[in-house]
Amino acid sequence: MGEGSATSLLDMEQGKAVCAGCNCPIRDKFLLRVNGGLWHEACVRCTMCGCSLKNTCFLRDHKLYCKRDYVE
């Protein structure tokens, strides 16, 4: 999972937003912005255990982690 590039509001309105997690277009009604990248809600998951990161996430080397896996 890499860090996403900046996407203009016009690009988002035209459906050109690309998920930083899966690199697929985002056509969802809502976008999540994590560490400057745009994400599908379903793609915001811990790199180690795969759990969904709903409220908080931790970042190391451009990868997302849950708290438990981040501190290990």
Rank of each mutant, 00 (worst) to 15 (best):
K54C: 09
L32W: 11
L38W: 00
S5C: 05
R60W: 00
D69Q: 08
G37Q: 01
Q14Y: 08
K63N: 10
W39E: 08
C19A: 05
L64W: 05
L53H: 02
C66N: 06
Y65T: 02
V44S: 03
S8V: 06
R45M: 09
C51M: 14
Y65E: 03
C43K: 02
M1H: 07
N23A: 10
S52L: 13
D69H: 08
C22V: 03
N55K: 14
N55G: 14
P25V: 12
L64Y: 09
G50M: 09
M48Q: 15
R68K: 11
T7M: 12
E41K: 14
T47Q: 13
A42P: 01
G37F: 00
C22R: 04
A20H: 00
G15N: 05
V44C: 04
H62P: 00
H40K: 00
E13R: 14
A42R: 15
S8M: 12
N55H: 15
G50L: 08
C66S: 00
A20P: 03
E13K: 12
L10K: 15
C66A: 03
R45G: 04
A42N: 06
L64H: 02
R33D: 04
F58D: 04
C43L: 01
P25N: 15
R27I: 10
A42T: 11
V44M: 01
M48E: 14
T47W: 10
L59K: 09
N55P: 00
S8T: 15
D28L: 05
C22P: 02
K63W: 00
T56C: 07
T56H: 12
C66L: 08
S8P: 09
F30Y: 09
G21A: 07
N55W: 09
T56R: 15
H62K: 13
G21F: 01
R60V: 02
C57G: 09
G21E: 01
P25C: 12
R60I: 02
M48R: 11
M48S: 15
N35G: 10
F30A: 08
K67W: 03
T56F: 04
L38G: 04
K16I: 04
R33Y: 05
M1E: 10
K63Y: 07
H62G: 08
C51L: 13
V34T: 05
Y65D: 07
M12K: 13
W39H: 02
G21T: 02
G50A: 05
G21C: 07
E13W: 12
V71W: 06
A20W: 06
C57M: 10
N35C: 12
K16D: 04
E41S: 12
G15M: 01
D61E: 11
A6P: 08
A6L: 13
S8W: 08
D28P: 03
L53T: 07
G37N: 05
H62I: 01
D11Y: 06
A42S: 15
G15Q: 02
L64A: 09
C24T: 09
H40T: 04
G2H: 03
N23D: 14
A17D: 01
M12C: 11
Y65N: 01
R45T: 14
C24K: 15
N35L: 06
